[in-house]
Amino acid sequence: MADVAALRRTVLEILPRVDLVIGWQRGPDALRAAPLLMRNAADVDRLIWDRTCVHNLATFLPREKGKKVAIIVKGCDSRSVIQLVQEGLVDREDLTVIGLPCDGVVSQAKLRRAADMDRLESAEIGADHVEITAAGKTLRMALDAVMPDKCLSCAYPNALLFDRFVGDPMEPPQQRQDPYARLDAFEALPLEERFDFWKREMSRCIRCYACRNACPLCVCRDYCLAESRQPHYQSQESDVREKWFFQLIHATHLAGRCTECGECERACPMGIPVLLFKKKLGRIMTELFQYEAGLDVSATAPLLTFQAEEENIVEKQWL
């Protein structure tokens, strides 16, 4: 991981030329961070850069449109920035991207399964391990065990789009986990079980829209179909059908745009694995159109174009 002092120096250098720099600061406990919007030099003292910097800060870019903004990004986050630039949702001219190399963050969801994170007393993150003291017990875990799946299967550890790069570029992990391993496991279940699984999971949803608002590409936000009365796409009721349908709005509106950064699932306060929907769509995009979102600012998303003779689509034949 790049050194935070070097990052702070870069931020201080850029700060006079922009309205704000978006980074991370320490959050409510030792293993949680929070976004930090730096406007003056004093704010930069609070900037951190370590494995707790999980947030994809690109989610703040569309709402700061019109300002000169600098943003600090990991490899995965940079793909969201590329996608936003590609779609004209942020202005490249107004944007300064500070790229970082990153070989993985820690997952709150995985930490919660392993340790009593609500009673966290102290934590130390080493090169290949995390040591946690919680509820009086000390636990040492391999870093791999508490990294999000997206880090274990990361193909882009370095920011793909940047104006300044802080640190030395990194190699992707030697033994990359299959990015669709969890999806495969899920799809191995019988259809009825998958249907019942979602009914159960979605019944937990509280319709708070954290998934939508954390998503860097869900840019309608305040004008979301889910709350629209005209057209009246869905009811405001909080039953499973409406909550599930909302997830399908989110997923289908991201088809061919989603970079699978996992913010939706990370943000979910109820721990619903909503990333599965996007993973599935991501794999379909690769299968059908050999397209991966967020790699090229000049690419056209596959659902915004067509080929008269599609290579991979076999239409249904009737006798």
């Binding site: 509280i206 954290a210 943000a267």
Partner: peptide, 16 residues
């Protein structure tokens, strides 16, 4: 503005 800088205005806090 500073306090709300990192807020994504979801309803997690109020619904819980």
């Amino acid at each position: 503005n500073e306090a709300a800088a990192g807020c994504i205005h979801c309803g997690a806090c109020t619904y819980a």
